[in-house]
Design a protein around this nucleic acid. Structure first.
Length: 753
DNA sequence: GAAGCCCACATTTTT
DNA sequence: TGTGGGCTTC
């Protein structure tokens, strides 16, 4: 049964077998980190440790789930399921629910997501009559989050000379007061935000030694994944829990620390050996993912950073191809190059579409690649952007659930008190909130008995409030007997939510209905899964506890997907692809233009690029454009310094690509402003051909007259005419439902049916 | 209360 | 360019 240990290399095995004290496992990119973690936990279980005594913290629910299932294959599902494994937030939120009273909350507290926090902060700024041009909600929110991550409560904040000075300096002296108000309001609303889940855990342990002792005793062995991305509170909680036995294993790669903007401190991993002087260090340096060229190029790149733990990552795979560098005249050409290369490699080298990824620094860059891929009929999927759980229609349903579970929830109340419309306007809501604030109670309490709380409203409004209250109370009653799925069905039907959406016949409206159905399905599977696991009554509260901490990353991926993946480098962490295109490698884009000359941030950007480079297994292509349309204007761009950071012996500017460039269809190019610009373009083999406007064509690119297309807004249609060239190229489409429209190809959002 | 208009704004986002 | 928020108007 120990044979799984044979599947490990020497370094991995050593890291798995050592469990007598603190250990730091530095796991280079592609070095089999997950394997080490899963085998270590499996090994401990085999050694007779109870799953109940193991705590494993991951950064996504998905990672936890995958690891559990792999451990399950070695030691059995039942055992694996009992391990305390999950994200910091999910593990500690369940601990907090057990001890909610100790921190002054009730066990049914709700969780504010970033949007809820932002809305509340915006409301507070408004209530305090501060200038929202100076007091930007986002900036205040970030400041509060930073404070919480650094264990600074509002009281501490107000006492910190340094912080006060900082706020005065940035002309936001009221920040401390906003923080305090925000804190109080969360308390009244019986809600915690993401940062609170950690900060209150820390406080719970600090103020209640007997509670801490219980968990110290329970968690005999603690393992933390992605340690390079932990923040100070997380680090402190780990120290608290491991204080008695020091059986703590942290795993990570300092070279892949890319979340400092969210409070992560690379110092946690860099200084781990100082925190625990008796700590053993294990380095996993063999990369099983990428060719030698890619690994060596990545090494040469990361060497430019100062802050790092020395390591020598190596690959024993083939030397492989050199890293291709593509230069494009502009962003559109870059899109075309990448798309046509993908098509070419897919056809000639037998790659599947899912073997390709396009990675960029900012989400906004995806659009042009979408256009280019669509034009070449390449299936793709864009990851990132607005997540499922952040969609309005989904959040609305969840807001009802939250209010039912916890009527004090101010943000949930605000969201739905007048949606669907029931005649309770802003004036009334403001009165209620003002009264609630004045009396230090929740808006729900005021709303429940307006007359008793000095709210001056007319009879009509009072009736409407009473009806709303009755609606929610009715659901609360249902919640006593129904399971989460049944109740959600009631909510969707009886509030008029679905009726409201059904009014909207536009494609957007349809997709909202679909999303609501998807949410309903997810409730159904949640309830059935929990019942299979032996729970009898699966309540709304159970679903909420989980759903508040879910992200799109946690959604199951379709098994039969075969599409090019497009995503930001941040979200690509942990993924791997045979062929990777890292695009937009220009100064002020990657590295971001916002870092100015801050060397720390430059190093983080470089690590980000390192993450991008190390996603590739076989082929890596870097591309940049000389001109790019950014924030509403065309700007000149220079190639990123990061390209020069890679030792040139691993790079290649292949001449063969030059031939491709002349094939760029004119309608994919941006028009050149004048001959001078055209001259600049000539070295890119981009010939300018005088454009005749509105010439009729039989076909442009893959578009032909008579072809069926589907437009995002206008629906299905047939191409009737193709006109013009370059930027002026248009398709005249006869839509089934919307008649004849002339669409500029440059912008047109349609795909070939 | 909803639609329409104007203006400011524009990294990254595992929870 | 595009989006989201706030304000105006009916």
């Amino acid at each position: 049964m120990d044979e799984f240990l044979n599947e490990l290399n020497e370094g991995q095995r050593a890291a798995v077998l050592y469990n007598d004290g603190p250990l730091l496992v530095i796991a280079g990119a592609g070095s089999g980190k997950t394997r080490v973690i899963t085998y270590k936990l499996a090994y401990l279980l085999q050694q007779g440790v109870s799953p109940y005594n193991l705590l494993a913290l991951t950064f996504t629910n998905k990672a936890a789930r995958e690891m559990k299932s792999r451990i399950g294959q070695i030691v059995g599902e039942d055992t694996a399921r009992r391990i305390w494994m999950g994200t910091f937030h999910s593990v500690f939120s369940s601990i907090l629910r057990r001890h909610a009273e100790a921190i002054g909350f009730r066990a049914d507290f709700s969780i504010y997501d970033a949007q809820d926090s932002g809305n509340l902060i915006r409301a507070i700024i408004k209530e305090m009559a501060l200038d929202d041009k100076i007091y930007k909600a986002g900036a205040i929110q970030a400041q509060i989050s930073r404070a919480k991550n650094a264990l600074i409560t509002p009281e501490k904040y107000a006492r910190s000379a340094e912080l006060i000075e900082h706020d005065n300096y940035v002309k936001r002296p009221a920040t401390a007061e906003i923080y305090q108000t925000y804190w109080n309001r969360c308390r009244t609303a019986n809600t915690l935000d993401f940062d609170d889940l950690l900060l209150h855990t820390y406080t719970l342990f600090k103020k209640n030694p007997e509670v801490l002792a219980r968990y110290q005793n329970q968690f005999q062995f603690i393992l933390v994944d992605e340690y390079q991305d932990t923040n100070p509170v997380q680090h402190e909680i780990i120290l608290q829990l491991a204080a008695t036995h020091h059986r703590i294993c942290v795993v990570g790669d300092d070279a892949q620390s890319i979340y400092s903007f969210r409070g992560a401190t690379i110092g946690n991993i860099l200084n781990f050996q100082k925190t625990y002087p008796e700590c053993k260090l294990f380095k996993l340096e063999q990369n099983y993912r990428s060719t030698q060229n890619i690994v060596n190029a990545a090494n040469s790149l990361i060497k430019k950073n100062q802050e790092q733990i020395a390591k020598t990552v190596f690959s024993q795979k083939a030397v492989g191809e050199k890293i291709a560098v593509l230069s494009a005249f502009n962003d559109h050409e870059e899109g075309y190059h990448v798309a046509s290369l993908i098509k070419q490699m897919q056809m000639r080298q037998n790659y599947a579409f899912k073997d390709f990824a396009i990675l960029y620094r900012t989400n906004a860059q995806s659009r042009i690649f979408e256009e280019s891929l669509r034009k070449l009929n390449i299936p793709y999927r864009v990851y990132g952007g607005l997540s499922f759980y952040q969609r309005k229609e989904v959040k609305d349903v969840i807001a009802y659930m939250r209010l039912i579970a916890n009527p004090q929830d101010e943000q949930a109340l605000r969201r739905i008190i007048n949606y669907p419309t029931r005649g309770i306007g802003d004036t009334t809501v403001s009165k209620i909130i003002a009264a609630a604030n004045a009396q230090g109670i929740s808006p729900w309490e005021v709303l429940s008995a307006p007359a008793h709380h000095q709210v001056d409203i007319n009879q009509g409004t009072a009736k409407k409030l009473a009806d709303f209250k009755a609606l929610i109370e009715g659901f609360r009653k249902d919640n006593e007997t129904m399971n989460a799925y049944e109740l959600s069905t009631e909510i969707i039907r009886n509030t008029g939510l679905i009726a409201d959406l059904n009014e909207d016949k536009s494609p957007e409206g349809l997709s909202k209905v679909q999303n609501m159905n998807e949410l309903s399905n997810s409730l159904y599977s949640f309830v059935s899964r929990r019942m299979e696991e032996g729970n009898e009554a699966v309540k709304l509260q159970d679903f909420l506890a989980e759903v508040s901490l879910l992200t799109d990353q946690d959604k199951e991926t379709e098994a039969d997907m075969n599409h090019v993946v497009m995503t930001t480098v941040h979200s690509a962490k942990g993924l791997e692809f045979k062929n990777v295109f890292v695009v937009g490698l220009e100064e002020n884009l990657f590295p971001s233009g916002r870092i100015y000359d801050n060397p720390r941030e430059l190093e983080e950007e470089r690590r980000l690029f390192y993450v991008a480079v190390t996603r590739a297994e076989e082929n890596l292509t870097l591309s940049f454009a000389k001109n790019r349309f950014l924030n509403g204007t065309t700007t000149d761009c220079r190639p990123s310094r990061f390209i020069k950071d890679i030792d040139p012996c691993f790079l290649q500017l292949p001449a063969s690509f030059a031939a491709e460039k002349s094939v760029v269809p004119r309608w994919m190019q941006k028009p050149l402003k004048d001959e001078g610009m055209a001259g600049q373009a000539s070295d890119r083999e981009l010939k300018r051909i005088p454009t005749a406007s509105n010439t009729s064509h039989q076909s442009i690119g893959n578009l032909k007259i008579g072809l069926a297309v589907r437009h995002e807004r206008f629906g299905k249609g047939i191409i009737a005419e193709l006109l013009g060239d370059g930027d002026d190229a248009k398709a005249v489409v006869e839509f089934d439902d919307n008649g004849r429209k002339q669409l500029l190809l440059k912008f047109a959002k349609f795909e070939v049916e």
